[in-house]
Amino acid sequence: MSSESPGILYCHCTYAQVIDPAVKAAVLRKLCDSGQSFEAVADLCEMAARQDPALKRLAGGETVKIAACFPRAVKWLFASAGAPLDPARTEVLNMRDRPEADVSARLAAPDLQPNLPTGKTTAADAPKPGASSGH
């Protein structure tokens, strides 16, 4: 187990039809056949809504590649669950608009190409879930 190799997280987006099923199936099949360890979740949105503590676990690794949807959505989904991703250590592979071969190739590649959007606010600075004033 190499400490340099990025962790892999695959989102199946189970509860919506927004990712081409053929793309999801091909990416997952190659991942399964790769021999690599990985994390697979049914639906990141559902986990974020539940503020699943597993998201902190998944976000907390050294580096991570996430096969899911748009980087902006993934960034703020994690943040909304109190599990901000580190922009310098995260690469999001968008299965909604990238060909399966591209996504699979990036998952298999040993290097990381960070691509989370950066902006005026870091996820860590954003309002924290569970801190409602009761307004």
Partner: peptide
Amino acid sequence: RVGVGGRTA
């Protein structure tokens, strides 16, 4: 999935 390589949470 725990395989022969890579990291898991």
